[in-house]
């Protein structure tokens, strides 16, 4: 094998595999009506629907126990939810656990409990409806049921952006 032929082979490798690239379908975007969500709760009996929270600003969060940034967001959103509710802001967090084995989600919450509602969707129907392409993805749904913000990934500093958006929505409410 001639050494000088290697660069062309190196170049060839990604080109070939790039053929695979197919972009995902368009996502549920800001301004769209939030697709309906009706799911069993993760830790307790009974199901809940997104529509049950109409009239409140909802932070709808798709998460899994195996996703490190998802786990960073849970305690932060729990603190924000409790603080805003104490201030009288009509705000709720609805988290949808997408672990294929719901036990994994339950185990995580036993260790780090949260006060908000956690639903279970091991089949992944709701993230498919919302065209989620990365974990975590969250949606801020206004009191009118319209998506006001779509957010992918989670870093600590994102919390302020999310809170600002919530306060903006709350400010526009009657």
């Amino acid at each position: 094998m001639k050494i000088n032929q290697i660069p062309s082979i190196l170049a060839f490798l990604p080109v070939l595999c790039l053929v695979l690239i197919v972009q995902g379908a368009s996502a549920a975007e800001t301004g769209d009506t939030a697709p309906a969500v009706q799911l069993p709760q993760l830790q307790v009996d009974g199901s809940m629907a997104l529509a049950d929270f109409r009239g409140r600003i909802v932070y709808l969060d798709f998460w899994a126990s195996w996703c490190p940034p998802c786990l960073v967001s849970m305690p932060i959103m729990n603190e924000m939810r409790n603080r805003l509710q104490a201030q009288g802001v009509p705000f709720e967090v609805v988290a949808v656990n997408v672990d294929s084995d719901p036990e994994d989600g339950i185990d995580f919450l036993l260790d780090k409990p949260v006060d908000f509602i956690v639903l279970s969707d091991p089949e992944g129907r709701s993230p498919a409806d919302y065209k989620v392409v990365g974990m975590p993805t969250s949606f801020l749904v206004g009191a009118d049921g319209v998506i006001a913000m779509r957010h992918q990934g989670f870093r600590r500093s994102d919390a302020q952006t999310i809170e600002n958006e919530i306060m903006k929505l709350a400010g526009g409410m009657p």
Binding site: P14, L18, L20, I21, Q23, V133, G134
Partner: peptide, 9 residues
């Protein structure tokens, strides 16, 4: 990452 993070170069 490409291809919805299914391919990494």
């Amino acid at each position: 990452n490409f291809n919805n993070d299914l391919t990494t170069i």
